[in-house]
Nucleic acid binder design. Structure first.
Length: 279
DNA sequence: TTAGCATGCGTAC
DNA sequence: TACGCCTGCTAAT
């Protein structure tokens, strides 16, 4: 589930339910029990998302720092007498009606205000945050000989971008994923950043990634009406061997930065540094 | 019923 | 670059 838009939705969900209220906190699984004991029956001040990091602030300067990783999930459920699968429930935050259940996170730690600030400082600009400074991302791009397809996954350059947004934004701009980042023209970078802001905000609002939606795709891209099995509509992500929705060429796939990458060899030819005004 | 894979990332080599 | 970690869904058996 978790690219940045999921984390932002979760922080909004936590705030709408628990912001400013005294909550109960427990770790049915036991692995977060000591911290949960400190937080129980204290006020949840607010939640905040930074890239793929979720920060939940409690009173007395205590913050729960969560990273879902690849398989972690945070779900809102009605409070019932029986907790399903308590052995996997790392953290539960609840009031009289609803609970936020955390399972399988990459990490869940109790940190202080200094550590909380360090999390914020170490993150790159997040296209979903109003305070994001794209110049910081540009400086990373400009200075790096690594492939742009690798840099897009670097959380210190583009916080919150994951494997789906990487593949889709490169496709939408006709960029060869192997292109050295520093070879990317400034205008194309600007166009990528603007596109990420739009695509990721759409995903926050819609609750799913949809990179072919009419509102952010021109007629020249031949918007297809196809619902991807992963909950959204996409051009190339996990479509290996299927025809490109724009030109019909079978979608290519290989590992880049240790993750599966998908692209169209015709729309994103080798060496292509993309189009700034395509979208 | 089991195996494999996944929208992630840290560490060791 | 390979592996380990955490869980849940799907496809294969």
């Amino acid at each position: 589930m978790p690219e940045g838009h999921v984390i932002h939705r979760l922080s909004t969900g936590l705030n709408s339910r628990f912001e400013g209220t005294r909550v109960q906190v427990a770790s049915p699984q036991g692995r977060f029990a000591a911290a949960a004991g400190l937080l129980n029956a204290t006020e949840l001040i607010s939640a905040e998302a930074v890239g793929k990091h979720l920060l939940i602030d409690f009173e007395s300067g205590r913050t729960v720092w969560i990273h879902l990783g690849l398989i972690g999930k945070l779900r809102f459920v009605p409070v019932t007498s029986q907790i399903p699968n308590p052995q996997t429930l790392r953290l539960r935050i609840w009031d009289g009606r609803e609970a936020a259940d955390l399972r399988g996170p990459q990490w869940c730690r109790l940190i202080d205000t200094a550590e909380r600030q360090a999390v914020l400082d170490s993150s790159g600009p997040d296209p979903l945050r109003a305070d994001a400074d794209p110049e910081r991302a540009w400086r990373k791009v400009q200075a790096s000989a690594r492939p742009i397809g690798v840099l897009l996954m670097d959380q210190k350059a583009f916080a919150g971008v994951g494997n789906i947004f990487r593949a889709e934004v490169l496709f939408r701009h006709g960029i060869d994923p192997q292109l050295p980042a520093k070879a990317l023209p400034r205008q194309v970078f600007d166009s990528i950043w603007t596109d990420l802001v739009g695509l990721m905000n759409y995903a926050v609002d819609a609750g799913r990634i949809d990179t072919v939606a009419e509102q952010h795709t021109p007629a020249a891209m031949k918007r297809p009406a196809r619902v991807d099995a992963h909950g959204g509509e996409v051009y190339v992500y996990r479509r290996l061997g299927e025809p490109c929705l724009v030109c019909g060429t079978p979608v290519s796939g290989s590992a880049l930065a240790g993750r599966n990458l998908y692209w169209c060899s015709s729309c994103q030819p080798t060496g292509s540094s993309g189009h700034a005004n395509r979208l």
